[in-house]
Amino acid sequence: MNLFRLGGDLAHLVSIFILLQKITANKSAAGISIKTQILYSIVYVTRYIDVFTKWISLYTFVMKLIFIASSFYTVWLMHNTYKSTQNPQIDTFKIRYLIGGSIIMAAIFNHKLTFNELVWSFSIWLESVAILPQLFMLQRTGEAENITVHYIFALGIYRALYIPNWVYRWIFDQYFDYIATVAGIIQTLIYSDFFYVYYQRVMKGKKFELP
């Protein structure tokens, strides 16, 4: 464990907390893409499919359970309790292409042709693009509540911090996973525009509005 990775994981936890706090405090899921949330549920279930069968550490065990449970809870809240506050007319990204593309990428780029490795690779590729419906929705709306953009920012920081973590592990641990690294860089690039607008507007105390 190094500080980049710990920071990334903590940013991930913070993002989940912000999202659930926003939905329950406002009693509204307005501005949040349920499609992105469904994709994250798929990502965590496939990534952590061995959570009960392979022990790494108490830290990873607890975090995995938190990520799986909170993503399902978020989808459940959006689909049931706050269904009427959703924006299906602007949450129109075709996620079948993201899922299909991730299946193809996992079939080509994987560490081993076993079920667990294929679903692991699938989860990595799917995670790299899972934010797209949310960013697409933001673009269609043109502006968003600050709490929503803080959520997206914290989530983006999570994978961005994994990049120096991989550099660190490559230098000091002789560890390198090309699939996680390439997908992680793609994921961070997808956020780059968003990060730029976030910095230009929100950090300077303005409303998040797309130029």
Binding site: H12, K54, S57, T60, M63, E117, D177
Partner: peptide
Amino acid sequence: DEVEIIHDEL
């Protein structure tokens, strides 16, 4: 004897 792949990251 293949090396088992361990994914220790989240």
